[in-house]
Design a protein around this nucleic acid. Structure first.
Length: 270
DNA sequence: ATACCGACCTGTCAGC
DNA sequence: TGCTGACAGGTCGGTA
């Protein structure tokens, strides 16, 4: 579900609402665990910890923790998978189905991790998490070009490869390629310098616009307050198969690249 | 190394 | 109304 703009919106919302708060107690569900660390390890680390800051790295939410036990050297890393939500709620509010973790905060509120498909992952670790790849919003055009020049994969697949850039997912890969007028199946290392430059600019632009709109809400995405985002009304390729291209009216095509549904304009994208 | 594909899960929607 | 199958914002591991 959530790509970089959605995770950024969620992390910023969480930071605003829970930074400075303390986790008093933790409940972890017993189902097959959506965990990378064990339930016991997560509870032991989170209980008594103060939330210093919440931020985004790639598609991960990072809680920087401080506590007397751990001397502030621990982090709680949350990946939302396709359907994960991290919500701040009042304890009286009904607990949604598929709630896998509830952290009671000193302020009286609760932090709830909800994830129907259980593709999300929770992990506690030492500080220093940097994510698997480069940050799409900070990388400059030259480094971007060098990075993509190393990949023989279709450019769409390269955009989704988190070891190259982390944070780009299916929606924004399609949107960036549309805006850069590049076909998704082109080999990344076959793109010209000028095309890579356009792709870099298009990607950063679409991510920034989406962050400004609070992310894209398709079915179940909501931020930490349970609010939907609005970028989906600005999608030009993703989810528009058969509809006229907003530039040239040619019907948008849908194909499969790297196992993912891929939308593009056969006329505008070369 | 690379790329395709199924697996992991549940929910929803289209089609019959 | 209800069943079946396809599909969904992500990632991982196996195989060719």
């Amino acid at each position: 579900m959530p790509e970089l703009p959605e995770v950024e919106t969620i992390a910023n919302g969480l930071n605003k609402r829970v930074a400075g708060d303390r986790i008093d107690s933790v409940w972890v569900g017993s189902k097959p665990e959506p965990l990378k660390s064990s339930a016991a390890e997560i509870s032991a680390t989170l209980e008594g910890a103060k939330v210093d800051r919440v931020r985004r790295v790639g598609k991960h939410i990072v809680f920087d923790l401080g506590s007397e036990k751990t001397a502030g050297d621990r982090q709680w890393i949350v990946h939302l998978g396709m359907t994960g939500q991290m919500l701040v709620a009042n304890p009286e509010a009904e607990t949604p189905k598929h709630t896998h973790l509830v952290a009671k905060l000193a302020s009286g509120r609760e932090l709830r991790f909800v994830d129907p498909r259980r593709f999300g992952r929770l992990e506690v670790r030492q500080t220093g998490f940097t994510g698997p790849g480069a940050e799409p919003l900070s990388i400059d055009a030259d480094d971007f070009a060098r990075l993509f020049h190393t990949s023989k994969a279709p450019v769409k697949a390269a955009l989704l490869n988190q070891k190259l850039l982390h944070g780009v997912g299916n929606i924004y890969a399609d949107e960036a390629l549309f805006r850069a007028h590049i076909r998704p199946r082109r080999r990344a290392n076959a793109l010209t310098k000028s095309e890579l430059r356009k792709l870099h600019a298009a990607l950063q632009k679409v991510l920034r616009l989406a962050i400004a709109a609070g992310g894209s809400s398709i079915s179940d995405y909501v931020d930490a307050d349970g609010e939907a985002g609005y970028f989906q009304i600005q999608h030009r390729a993703y989810g528009r198969e058969g509809k006229p291209c907003l530039t040239c009216k040619t019907p948008i095509k849908k194909i499969v690249v790297g196992g993912r549904g891929t939308h593009y304009c056969p006329k505008c994208q070369k």
